[in-house]
Amino acid sequence: MSAFIADADWLCFDPAPSKPDFTPPPGAVDAHCHVFGPGDVFPYAPERKYTPCDAGRDQLYRLRDFLGFDRNIIVQATCHGTDNRAMIDALAHSKGKARGVATVGADISAGEIAAMHAAGVRAVRFNYVRRLVDPRPDAHYRAIIDRIAAHGWHIVIYFEAADLAEKWAFFTSLPITIVVDHMGRPDVTKSPDGPEFAQFLRFMEHGNIWSKVTCPERLSKSPPPGYDDFVPFARAVVDRFPDRVLWGTDWPHPNMNMVGHMPDDGALMDIIPRIATNADLQHRLLVANPMRLYWPEEVDA
């Protein structure tokens, strides 16, 4: 029996999602997903703020094949802290079809970074969501950026809409490619033409900023499977910044107990043509953009 028992209110991923009507283009990349454990092999961090159900690499890759993706970007889960072994193990078993986003400390060595790069890591993630982590001072993150610069890595930032104004000066000062998780978690009950989302679109006008147009199941107040209030926000970002957007499943959908339901991954796929409304936009979102960011050596070959 596992030494780690999931939180009593934890919602585990759907083991039998529906087959989506939408077929992704060849070479499509699920650009935001996670692996959890299994905890007996890759223990969860003592400082974690949640304990999930196990959701390992084999389950992730079965979902990839079922949905019609070719590749994955695996983002280090906060429940594993800075112990990236579960994510790196998933990369090692991907046959070159996955890249990773790590969580690291400011004391990480050049040798450790080089080893992670060889394993397929191409970015680090900075999480500012206070219910999940305790954010650090700006100097902590700048030290990490200085250490990863030699390998050409980018950073992924996760924050909530209300945090953008506070962190604006810091984020816009960074001389590095920045990928924003989930459009900065906008309040989708408000107008996509309103001042709050306009601030995010101004942020995106900086040419080094990318965004994941992800997580309708997490952001929406509309019922599934349509998540209708999410669609105009994501469509606005895709239409305006088609070469700097990514899409991912967010499997296995952590902390959905806070929302109250576990999504059907097949139904989530069927939102893609509603936010990327033609084949060209879909190819950029799912193939060209993630390949350029995570496998540039194949794009430039």
Rank of each mutant, 00 (worst) to 15 (best):
S2R: 15
S2D: 07
A3G: 13
A3I: 11
F4W: 13
I5S: 13
D7M: 00
A16Q: 04
P20Q: 03
P25N: 09
V29E: 11
V29A: 03
V29N: 10
V29I: 07
D30Q: 03
H34V: 09
G37E: 06
G39L: 07
D40W: 15
D40P: 03
V41C: 12
A45I: 15
E47G: 11
Y50S: 01
T51C: 14
G56S: 06
R57L: 01
Q59S: 14
R62P: 11
G68F: 12
G68N: 05
F69D: 05
R71W: 14
C79E: 10
H80Q: 11
D83C: 00
A86G: 11
D89Y: 03
A92L: 08
K95Q: 14
A98L: 01
R99M: 00
G100N: 05
G100V: 04
A102M: 01
V104H: 00
V104L: 10
A106Q: 15
D107R: 10
G111L: 00
M116C: 12
A119E: 04
R122K: 00
A123G: 03
A123F: 09
R125C: 02
Y128N: 04
D138V: 09
A139N: 09
Y141S: 01
D146G: 08
I148E: 12
W153N: 05
H154W: 06
I157T: 12
F159E: 01
A165W: 07
K167N: 12
F171L: 14
L174R: 02
I178L: 11
V180F: 03
V180S: 05
R185C: 09
P186R: 12
D193G: 13
P195N: 02
E196M: 14
F197E: 01
F197G: 06
L201P: 05
E205D: 14
H206L: 06
H206S: 08
I209P: 13
S211G: 09
K212S: 09
V213K: 03
P216V: 07
E217C: 12
P223Y: 10
P223K: 06
P224Y: 07
G226H: 15
D228C: 13
D228L: 13
A234V: 14
F241R: 02
P242L: 13
P242S: 06
D243Y: 11
L246H: 04
G248I: 08
T249L: 03
D250F: 07
P252I: 12
N257Y: 07
V259L: 08
G260C: 12
D264F: 02
M269I: 00
D270V: 03
I271Y: 01
N278W: 02
A279Y: 08
D280P: 04
L281K: 02
R284Y: 10
L285S: 03
L285P: 00
A288K: 09
P290S: 06
R292C: 03
L293N: 15
W295H: 06
P296M: 02
E298W: 14
V299T: 05
A301F: 07
A301T: 12
